[in-house]
Design a protein around this nucleic acid. Sequence first.
DNA 1: CTGAAAGCGCTTACAG
DNA 2: CTGAAAGCGCTTACAG
Lengths: 362, 362
Amino acid sequence: MARITMQSVADRAGVSKTAVSLAFNDPGRLAEGTVKRILALAGELGYVPDAAARALRTSRTSSLGLLLPQQLDVVLSNPYHTEFLMGVGNVCHQEGYTLLLVPPVRGSMLRAIPSASVDGFIVSGMDEDRGEIQTLRQREVPFVLVDSCGAAGAATVLSDDATGMEELVTHVLELGHRRITLVRLMAGEDENYQYWRSVDSARMRGAVAALGKFGMGVEDVDIAEAYCTRQSGIRVFGEIWDAEQRPTAIVAFSDIIALGILDSARERGVRVPEDVTVTGFDDIAEAGWSAPPLTTVRQPIATKGRLAAEYLVESLREHREHGVNRHQLPVTLEVRGSSGPPRKNGSAARNLKPHQRSLAGA
Amino acid sequence: MARITMQSVADRAGVSKTAVSLAFNDPGRLAEGTVKRILALAGELGYVPDAAARALRTSRTSSLGLLLPQQLDVVLSNPYHTEFLMGVGNVCHQEGYTLLLVPPVRGSMLRAIPSASVDGFIVSGMDEDRGEIQTLRQREVPFVLVDSCGAAGAATVLSDDATGMEELVTHVLELGHRRITLVRLMAGEDENYQYWRSVDSARMRGAVAALGKFGMGVEDVDIAEAYCTRQSGIRVFGEIWDAEQRPTAIVAFSDIIALGILDSARERGVRVPEDVTVTGFDDIAEAGWSAPPLTTVRQPIATKGRLAAEYLVESLREHREHGVNRHQLPVTLEVRGSSGPPRKNGSAARNLKPHQRSLAGA
DNA sequence: CTGAAAGCGCTTACAG
DNA sequence: CTGAAAGCGCTTACAG
């Protein structure tokens, strides 16, 4: 049985293709009876307008693309993204869009990705110098950047990462910790696959600012790196704990990494927070239940998704460039069950320096 | 600046559209220099072949559709689906497909949904009599059914729900419970939005089978209903607990409902399992951490996603109908911290009936 | 109220 | 090794 097209419906109904098209898209312009007859026949034949043809003709697809920095199962293993997706999905539902998930395609990233058939893209965690984004711009495909500080004329949604991390590190320093390991976000193995670079540097900036207030610098802390996965958190704790100098506090740049660190600590019989304090960033749901619960920085993840999608939909509708429009969302410090450094040779309070009072407001 | 098409690249390169197309799709047929020149120019201009046009011409999109029974944020609030998505995403990555998420569109479900531009569909939790599926079949769009017992000639991936529930209810009965409330899956408000009906009835069948072995029937238990959401679990516990006759065991047909029940019980100061035993189904990750951990039936959720996607991809590749091909995955009972009914007037063991030995093998 | 015709941007035999 | 031409299935002025 041949593919059933608009022409076949038209033939059977004894009308033109135009009439069939109109029956679907602008029924008011047809006699009521004609519309009914066509629609009934179409239903009977199981006819549905071909999406590709319609998209080619109208250059509208009714779907939004989400450009992801890693393959889907890796991305989804971080609850951060699930929550983000929920925000995006909420808007998609309201506005009647489907959502195309576009992870990096093996090999032909630059070519394959931006060719997806969507009305616009939400770009997650990628810096603007990536080829995909430049292609998007050249093709004039509307897009909005999330978790990336877009430079020139790109709409952007991100959290105030610097302030969040500054508050958190300040908190850790106030607790008396002076041996601190920062676990930064690893940017991806491949030079073309870099992601979360700007988030990482914003958080780093915040950490350095906090250190500065205590008369410390980046040279006074240890730096480790991990991918944004639980597994990588497990690995990095091993490295940290097997090193010569153990920290009294580990400041992970992401909750999922912190949770991996917690897993590994439990496994090795290291007590948290008695032996070492661990903090995260994001405040994913599990940060509240984990044992022990995680001190972290809360960012409104679903809101981020919602905002990005709304923004994209709006610029699709208005069909105009929004220019440099940056939404920066507020964050809050969530203090949960952290403690000062283990007390050996006198109280931790001894380590506190005088300028610790000049803190950033919460 | 005008949209940049294949023609503009051809003009600039001084070749025909054919050559440009070939450079992308079959470079071997062109002189090496020509290919290089074209590709370089294309890169410079930011040219990317238009996806819609290509799809129309080749009737290939390189994306898979996932037909969802509820709006995206509702779906994703159940970790079951996240895990399922990870399985699907894994295959998408391997095979180079993007994934289009297609929740029900407001209003025009039947028309809008199956028109999405994809090579095939994974259909989650919908029964075959739904209009979308009939349309898929009529249009001869390849699809595979998940969590639904497809009747005639549809590929299907599901778990052995009946056996799982039978084992679980048997376990609950063996513990001595006789006042049991089953919380079935609510099928959706709208007549056209029914979902998880066959999963629900398979689980119900299993429960009835278990009851039968103890000389009981469906009339000997209470039946409640909840949507597959945490919120709905919270609500249903309220109803159950406020009723005249309280059960000693609540058998929820899904973990997410059971977790909601646990939330509500905690809120009301009802102790689990001392005051009431609660069980789930699925074994989502949180079932292992929850307080108390949930006795449940483990089904291989990610595997289900992987299998469904592999299956679809294969039938796309081979371009043939697979006929009635049903994968039924095994399940296992996960016993975690459940207990017998509260002991009043003598030991719970008294309630056990003699035929309790004739249990289904694990 | 309805239809003939052009054209969206590609791919692909086919001819040279 | 390269190009002219047809056509995928729609939508949309335009004409009647």
